[in-house]
Nucleic acid binder design. Structure first.
Length: 332
DNA sequence: ATTTAGACCTGTCAGC
DNA sequence: TGCTGACAGGTCTAAA
């Protein structure tokens, strides 16, 4: 799910929140989330490591640890990080891989005995005071489902917990020696928000690719970080039909597309990411960018530029949204 | 060499 | 109310 803006926003929040913290232990509730040949070895390796930095590359989050180690995290469709303040108690003696059985206690939680955590109701949603990044105290809610879907829990020495929640279990967390970082991130193309990314670089990436431009934009070897939302948005802003062959774009169109990609990503970050369903930030807050998309999931609604209804088609098995009037399939 | 289903997973929602 | 199918911010692999 998360694309570049969501990962970048999370990286910025984590950078402010957890640098300097020490991982006291990690609890794993879904083994396949940890892409490691030997789970006990992973748990031993990560214990007592200090967090030195948080970075992003494409859709990967990278956490620098003491001992020349790095964690790479790919959230895939529904992976999220959630930071809990001290005071939450999780009884892990239950020795189960099913978080439903967690005996969750804490100053903010009132879970009735026998409550069905799989069907969170508004009454069950505990509220929680957490410090927001701007130091204001904001009130947020943590749904029991956030705990239900917790796949990995990092316990910090200061009592806080960093939860990796992931309903669909596609997300992956891997531990690497720092010197193998290139291997860990192999196959990623240019970073669209770096100064090195230019219209010329984009043109090189598109050259010789005869597939539909939508599909090519989703290829992480061509550009790192674009996903289904921002690819559709960028093509809309650039007036380019998603089925145009990538190698048929004119230099003027590539220039327009280049500018559209960069601005769409930057706007996404500034709005705190796009949440139409699962995505939440570190404090459980939804991103605002969904209120600003022009075509994604907007089929049937009038185009903001010309009023023509937005259409939805399927391109390489991904739903694709565009304005049939603004984005004409002309010189194929 | 490229396309394209299928896998991996679970939840939600529309329609009958 | 209950079942079925479509769909969901991604990526990899095997078959066509």
């Amino acid at each position: 799910m998360p694309e570049l803006p969501e990962v970048e926003y999370t990286a910025r929040q984590l950078r402010e929140a957890i640098i300097g913290a020490t991982i006291r232990e990690a609890l794993v509730f879904w083994e396949r989330t940890i892409g490691h040949p030997d789970l006990p070895d992973f748990l031993a390796e990560i214990t007592d490591r200090r967090i030195l930095g948080v970075r992003r590359r494409g859709k990967f989050l990278i956490i620098d640890l003491s001992g020349e180690l790095i964690l790479t995290i790919h959230r895939r469709m529904t992976g999220n990080f959630l930071l809990l303040p001290p005071g939450w108690e999780i009884d892990t003696s239950l020795k189960t891989t099913d978080p439903v059985a967690w005996n969750i206690k804490g100053p903010f939680i009132k879970t009735p005995v026998g409550a069905d955590l799989s069907r969170p109701s508004p009454i069950d949603r505990p509220s929680l005071d957490v410090r927001h990044r701007n130091e204001k105290v904001k009130q947020h809610t943590i749904a029991p489902s956030d705990l239900l879907y917790c796949r990995v829990c990092f316990n910090f020495a200061d009592g806080r917990r960093l939860l990796f929640t992931d309903p669909r279990k596609f997300g992956r967390i891997k531990l690497w020696p720092r010197e193998r970082e290139q291997e860990a991130l192999k196959g990623l193309g240019p970073e669209p928000l770096s100064n090195d990314f230019t219209a010329g670089i984009l043109a090189n990436g598109l050259a010789g690719r005869k597939g539909p431009i939508k599909q090519v934009l989703l290829n992480q070897e061509v550009i790192a970080g674009l996903g289904n939302i921002y690819a559709d948005e960028a093509l809309y802003y650039a007036y380019i039909h998603p089925l145009r062959r990538a190698n048929s774009l004119t230099p003027a169109e590539i220039q327009l597309l280049y500018e559209a990609i960069v601005s769409v990503l930057i706007l996404g970050i500034e709005h705190g990411g796009t949440s139409f369903s699962e995505y939440r930030d570190l404090w459980g807050e939804a991103g605002d960018n969904y209120n600003h998309v022009r075509v994604y999931h907007q089929q049937g609604k009038p185009c903001m530029r010309c009023g023509t209804p937005i259409e939805r088609i399927v391109v390489s098995q991904r739903s694709t949204h565009f304005c049939p009037a603004c984005q004409k399939l002309t010189s194929e």
